[in-house]
């Protein structure tokens, strides 16, 4: 009994501060301490949420943004994974491509926005391209690092026991690189949302960022705040999903063992 109570207390304490902030914020807005032109009250944000939910606008925009984020992530992530694996396993491939990739990596991908708009206009391709580019590097770098840091003693053991190259890859190298790949994955998810927000704010005709920009035009502060909160929630959701995957696949890792 006591331990359950303690665990609720421990999990609950994290939400204490946000709840307090919302409370103070609401009181400050009601008493006129914060002008409605500067910041919408939490109740107004909740109201905007309800309104947009009923009109279907919110769901549509979240759907559009999520689809963009995920497809960009899938494209950039898989290319990153492929390059990471290839360069980790083959010295030839690494010599050929790594220098180039490292040079490209040092260009902030958001700096390409003007160029991307010139190339693709404000269509879907522009957003996909930017998200894919942003997601590519954390996945690539961490996959490469993961493969290079696989214990060579285990690889040698696998060879002595007559594992073929494929078996060696699936039984020894890939599982050994997985923790690092997950670090890259979680990092990439953060970059995915960041890129998408910027891209949608600057050039889009639908999506959450577009919704926020439209609201700004009409001085709908509550909707702007709502979009920001939804971004925060989506980001947290993606991170939780990655952590769940991590827990499921890295059960062997002492850091993920319960009991």
């Amino acid at each position: 009994m006591k331990s359950t109570g303690q665990s609720i207390l421990r999990n609950g304490t994290g939400w204490l501060l946000p709840a307090l902030i919302v409370l103070v914020w609401e009181i400050a807005a009601r008493t006129g301490l914060i002008s409605p032109n500067v910041m919408a009250a939490p109740s107004a944000v909740a109201e905007a949420f309800w309104r947009l939910l009923l009109s279907g606008e919110l769901v549509r925009n979240i759907g559009v943004s999520t689809a963009r984020a995920l497809s960009g992530f899938a494209i950039g992530g898989s290319i990153g994974l492929i390059f990471g694996l290839a360069n980790g396993l083959s010295g030839l491939s690494r010599n050929l491509t790594d220098t180039t990739l490292q040079m490209v990596r040092n260009i902030p991908h958001l700096a390409l926005i003007p160029l991307v708009i010139l190339w693709f206009g404000i269509d879907e391709e522009a957003k996909l391209f930017l998200v894919a580019l942003g997601v590519f590097f954390p996945i690539y770098v961490n996959t490469l690092l993961g493969i290079q840091s696989v214990d060579p003693q285990l690889v040698e053991m696998g060879r002595v026991y007559g594992m073929s190259r494929t078996t060696l890859f699936f039984r020894v190298i890939l599982p050994g690189a997985l923790p690092a790949i997950f670090v890259g994955l979680r990092y990439a998810l953060g970059i995915m949302w960041l890129t998408l927000i910027v891209a949608e704010t600057i050039a889009a005709s639908s999506g959450l960022g577009y919704m926020a920009m439209q609201a700004r035009e009409f001085l709908l502060i509550d909707v702007v705040v709502l979009s920001i909160l939804i971004y925060a929630l989506l980001g947290k959701l993606a991170d939780s999903f990655a952590r769940l995957l991590e827990r499921l696949t890295l059960q062997w890792h002492p850091a993920f063992q319960t009991a």
Partner: peptide, 8 residues
Amino acid sequence: EPRLLPWA
């Protein structure tokens, strides 16, 4: 060293 696969 034992060289066991930690993930198996």
